[in-house]
Every structure is written in C-alpha cells, then in structure tokens.
C-alpha cells in the first residue's frame, strides 16, 4: 500500500464566524498526485493554505513527517517552505529579480548554496520547464504560461517533498494552459508527490491518482480518477461532473 506523506485530521477553518472548512480528514499519498476539484467557494484553496500553514487552520492537525504542523514553532515552519512547495494561481514571481534570481533566491538564502551551485541547479530546473533561455529576463516580459513555468522551477529548486498547485492554470490565456499542464504531467511521471487544486477536469482525470470532490467545506467524495468521473456515487458529484463536462 501507499504511504501517507501528509495526514489531515479534522481540519476546520473559520473566517469571521464563517465556517469555510468543516472537518477535513484524509491522506496525501507519497509519490502520487491528488487532485482537488469542486465548485467555486467549496474551500479547495483554503484547504491547501491550511495544510501548508499560509493560513493556519482554526482546529485540527496536519501531520507531516511525524510532526503536527499546527503545533510547530516558527522555526520549523520556516523549514516547511523547503519541504512543501507551492505554485500560486497568480504566479507571484518576484518582479524585482530576474528569472534566474527568482529560482536561486531560496537555495542561496535558505539552503545556503554558493551562487555558482545555485545557478547551476537553477538552470537544470529551468531547462526542465523549458525556460532556460529566459534566465536573464525579468518576469514582466514573460507570458502567463512562461511565468507559471518559472514559478514551478522556483518551487522545484527547493527540492520539496510535496508540491502544491493552487489553480495553476486559472489565470492563463487558453493558449498557454497546455505548456503548464505538460510540465505538471512530466513531474507526475517522475513520481513527484503533488496536490493540485484545479478546474481542468480532463487534466485531473488524466494526471491524478486520486481525486477529492469538495463542496461546501467538506470532502463529498474520494476515489481514483477513473471511478470518480465514470461512476460518481453521490448526487452532488454527479451533478457537478455533468455540469462541468457539458461546458
């Protein structure tokens, strides 16, 4: 059986008395791809942020490498960034640094690599996402798809155990979506542990080992991709899949 990289236990999240997450339990398996789908406002992105502590959960625990992150001190939370990578919907590249510097900043400052070694590794990851030729460009001059690929290289450069994607293609022009999905697919084939919040149903079906369908702050249904799309059990899931696949 697969081993759990991250375990979620009864996670809740409240914003101003509004319960956005209503008790999430589940496991993120090592070497596998978990896709989280569901209607807007179902709490998918909030869950991702609760897990990697960008917005700590109101209650519950997140067990990663035997440690409960919700009870971890600041020191170990800083190291979390090294181990759980994050790719954002709006890329969040640092516009004041070149593509190369965006990728090397973490390795240089956090992993304390020498400039030379950081550059060398960064070029490796940039090549992996097909952006090595833009190493000296500034983010402003790149297309959305190029930016997102650089953002992926930046996350990979920290050699994370797990990589989170928060709607990585939602801010892209349609013609740029393919290049980003291709990179993610490549990572999946290399057995990178990933959690992807996405609206790209075909992609989710194709790349994910496991899918969580979320609605209203809860996991409504969990299954392997094929079963969930072909034979949804719950009424809500059926309704959602029917609706999105019609579009």
């Amino acid at each position: 059986m697969t081993k759990a990289a991250i375990e979620l236990k009864d996670i809740t999240k409240e914003f101003n008395g509004n319960q956005v997450l209503k008790g999430i339990n589940g496991e993120i398996d090592e070497g596998q791809v978990l896709a989280i789908i569901g209607p807007s406002g179902s709490g998918k992105s909030t869950l991702l942020r609760a897990v990697n502590q960008l917005a700590a959960p109101s209650s519950g625990s997140v067990v990663f490498e035997g440690q409960d992150l919700t009870k971890a001190g600041k020191q170990s939370l800083n190291h979390l960034g090294e181990k759980i990578g994050m790719v954002f919907q709006s890329f969040n590249l640092f516009p004041n640094h070149t593509v190369l510097d965006n990728v090397t900043l973490g390795p240089r400052r956090v992993k304390k690599l020498s400039d030379e070694q950081a550059n060398q590794e960064a070029m490796h990851y940039l090549k992996q996402v097909g952006m090595e030729e833009k190493a000296n460009a500034y983010p402003d001059s790149l297309s959305g798809g190029q930016k997102q690929r650089v953002a992926i290289a930046r996350a990979l450069a920290m050699q994370p155990k797990v990589l989170f994607f928060d709607e990585p293609t939602s801010a892209l022009d349609p013609e740029n979506v393919g290049e980003v999905l291709k990179v993610i697919q490549q990572l999946a084939s290399e057995k990178m542990t990933m959690v992807i919040v996405t609206h790209e149903m075909h992609f989710a079906k194709q790349v994910a080992d496991k899918i969580w369908f979320m609605a209203d702050g809860q996991i409504v249904e969990e299954n392997d991709a094929e079963s969930l799309f072909s034979h949804p059990k719950k009424e809500k899931t059926k309704h959602f899949i029917k609706q999105v696949l019609m579009d």
Binding site: G81, I84, M86, F88, L93, L105, R109, R154, A155, A157
Partner: peptide, 19 residues
C-alpha cells in the same frame, strides 16, 4: 502574494523584507 511566495520557499522574515 509576494509575501506568501517568499514564505513558500522558506525565506525568513528578514530575507523576505530585504530581497
């Protein structure tokens, strides 16, 4: 998002401010 991105690659507060 800038602060979050810095946090996501493990930069501490001082480095986040500085770089």
């Amino acid at each position: 998002g800038q602060k979050e991105a810095a946090q996501s690659i493990g930069l501490n507060k001082v480095d986040t401010m500085r770089f």
